[in-house]
């Protein structure tokens, strides 16, 4: 389990997170949902130790990330993959080089073993045959899938997704969401930060609603939909309305 307890962090006198306490269960898809600038991405950066909170503690399987030594943090990061909002692929490297860049002990593997690893990862994200292309030659959705393949390269227990479907067309969005589902079937824990309600609902098991640096609500979709909090009701308004409209509901089911 990943736990954030009473986390507060400020940058340049701006409060980013204010007394945030959340729990993320392993093996589940946890969605951190909220409007832009709510502090969602900072939760991911704190989990992975990129940002150190001003107060509070982060427990990763019971170990306090904030008190870890540099070596322990580096070891932790090798069990957690991250897919960045802008993908953060290295422009000067090919798809294959990007995927292998962070692979530990790659010098111990033969050329054939590395090739097999690349083929396996690219096939998982439906991008076989793209190993020699450069990021600039890929579409937005393809870049996202390469970023996912890179995050999967060292078999992480947890993958953190920062706005994985923002800016993607519906077809690419669907393929990224399918990948997310595939990861869950493979026992990988996902933490997805997004502001896109439809995508969140499609893949989420648990939901954490955040606004202006504070947690508004957390729990299953049913619990969230029953919330009396005005912000939650406003955020989910369109979803609730659509689901109470039989024509829209039937149309969605037919499309599925």
């Amino acid at each position: 389990m990943i736990e954030l307890k009473n986390i507060s962090i400020s940058l340049n006198d701006n409060v980013i997170l204010d007394d945030v306490t959340i729990s993320i269960e392993m093996g589940m898809n946890t969605i951190v949902l909220g409007p832009s600038g709510a502090g969602k991405s900072s939760i991911l950066k704190i989990i992975i130790g990129l940002w150190v909170p001003d107060s509070g503690e982060v427990l990763f399987e019971g170990k306090n990330v904030c008190k870890m030594t540099t070596d322990e943090i580096l070891q932790l990061r090798k069990t957690v993959g991250m897919v960045f909002q802008g993908n953060a692929l290295f422009d000067s490297l090919t798809v294959a080089e990007n995927i292998l860049y962070f692979l530990p002990d790659k010098k111990k593997l033969s050329q054939n073993e590395l090739q097999l690893k690349i083929e396996e990862l690219l096939s998982f994200v439906n991008l076989s045959g793209t190993e020699n292309l450069y990021p600039e030659e890929l579409s937005g959705g393809m870049k996202k899938r390469v970023a996912i393949a890179r995050a999967l390269a060292f078999n992480p227990q947890v993958i953190l997704f920062d706005e994985p479907t923002t800016g993607l067309d519906p077809i690419n969005t669907e393929s990224v969401l399918e990948l997310n589902e595939k990861l869950k079937q493979n026992g990988i824990t996902s933490v997805v930060v997004t502001h896109i309600l439809d995508d969140a609902i499609e893949v989420g098991d648990n939901f954490i609603i955040i606004n202006e640096g504070s947690i508004i609500e957390a729990g299953s979709l049913e619990k969230i939909l029953r919330s009396k909090n005005p912000f939650v009701q406003e955020f989910f308004k369109r979803f609730i309305e659509e689901n109470h409209n039989p024509f829209i509901r039937i149309s969605k089911e037919v499309n599925k």
Partner: peptide
Amino acid sequence: MQLSEQIDALKAFGA
């Protein structure tokens, strides 16, 4: 690289 989160990616992947 810093602006496009590539530096964060390096750190996040333990490099």
